[in-house]
């Protein structure tokens, strides 16, 4: 049985934070609905961790407000905000056992000692580490340490759970496994969660909504599908997934590319443009008079990737379903067919 929490709404309003001449947060605003998992995504140095730390109270802000559950906590120190954080580096207290780590956190939250053992056992079960309570952190693998850190954070039933790139230090297989578990547990417990990552795939899989950051600003917030298929800016399009920049001409909301017409997303300019087309929005048809030449093919399991050069030298990446590249070999002439999916131009 999973004990759910009373979910809390969070509002980060017009936050600004400057380090010297660098604006880590530039008029940053974000709302989290109760029980929602929002991922902040962006390249290194874009300010996503600063935003998370501002919410946690570990970083002050120059201006703006942090409101949690209707209460302004902007000036409250970290230890007086009802939150719990899981860090990128393993943050277990090395001198305490697994159970000791969780009990320590519960003790700080004034949980009666008779209820602590029960909470420890329950939360360790929740993360699949029942029976590991008497081990020390050094006796656990990295993935297990992060599970314990997650159990400790969940045990205190915080208003907001903060995850600061918690999977970055793990190897690929464990990362995927733990990512799915975090999502399962977060959904079960129903805790409002802010998840910071630079891994787009992680964000797309785990989040209810994604906020993409660039240079301290939130450039787009939306559900993963929207962020992927309707990027608001070329930066978002470039950062989320892979895009091909194909030369074309835009007029009246459509672009003419490779002799075909592609609808454009709002915000695209007119005139000569580069249209950002996803690799999976292109299909290939072998033909002797095709505009492209196959350069290389690669099998990726469920999909295949084919690199094609156009007559003007542009390299285009095409993603096909697993078997559809069969028969294509480097040197083949192919025609590129663009799906009629709205794309962004720059």
């Amino acid at each position: 049985m999973t004990e759910s929490v009373t979910s809390t709404a969070v509002t980060l309003s017009h936050l600004t934070r400057t380090f010297g001449k660098v604006k880590a947060l530039d008029d940053f605003s974000l709302d989290l609905a109760p029980g929602e998992l929002v991922a902040l995504l962006g390249p290194s140095g874009c300010g996503k961790t600063t935003a998370l730390r501002a919410l946690a109270g570990l970083e002050g802000v120059d201006s703006g407000a942090v409101v949690v559950g209707g209460r302004d906590v902007t000036r409250l120190p970290a230890n007086r905000r009802d939150m719990a954080m899981v860090f990128q580096s393993y943050s277990l207290f090395p001198h305490l056992t697994v159970a000791g780590n969780i009990e320590f956190a519960l003790g700080l939250r004034k949980v009666p000692s008779r209820r602590r053992a029960e909470a420890v056992a329950h939360n360790l079960e929740l993360v699949g580490l029942g029976g590991h309570g008497d081990r020390y952190p050094h006796q656990l693998s990295g993935g297990q340490q992060q599970r314990v850190a997650l159990a400790r954070a969940l045990a205190v039933r915080p208003q907001v759970l903060l995850l600061d790139e918690p999977l970055s230090a793990l190897d690929a297989k464990v990362r995927v496994q733990l990512r799915d578990e975090i999502r399962r547990i977060q959904t079960e417990v129903g805790i409002t969660t802010l998840f910071v990552t630079h891994d787009q795939e992680e964000a797309l899989v785990i989040a209810d909504r994604i906020g993409v950051m660039e240079s301290g600003r939130l450039v787009q917030v939306g559900d993963p599908r929207e962020i992927y298929s309707r990027p608001a800016t070329p930066f978002v399009a470039d950062f989320i997934g892979t895009t091909n920049a194909l030369q074309g001409h835009a007029i009246d909301g459509v672009a003419h590319v490779l002799g075909q017409t592609v609808p454009l997303l709002p915000g695209s300019p007119t005139g000569p443009v580069s249209v950002l087309i996803r690799p999976e929005s292109i299909t290939l048809r072998p033909t002797a008079d095709g505009a492209g030449t196959v350069v290389s093919t690669g099998f990726m399991g469920a999909t295949s990737r084919v690199r094609v050069t156009l007559t003007d030298g542009t390299l285009v990446l095409v993603q096909l379903r697993g078997s559809t590249r069969d028969g294509l070999v480097p040197g083949d002439r192919v025609a590129l067919e663009l799906a009629s999916i709205p794309a962004l131009a720059r």
Binding site: A56, G57, L58, P77, A78, N79, R80, M83, A84, M85, F87, S89, S91, F93, P94, F104, A105, L108, R109, R152, V156, L162
Partner: peptide, 20 residues
């Protein structure tokens, strides 16, 4: 030899005062 920042910030985020 210790990760001072992470340890102290973790404890702070769980509600520990500086003396704690």
């Amino acid at each position: 030899a210790i990760d001072l920042k992470t340890l102290s910030e973790t404890a702070r985020s769980f509600g520990a005062s500086w003396p704690t």
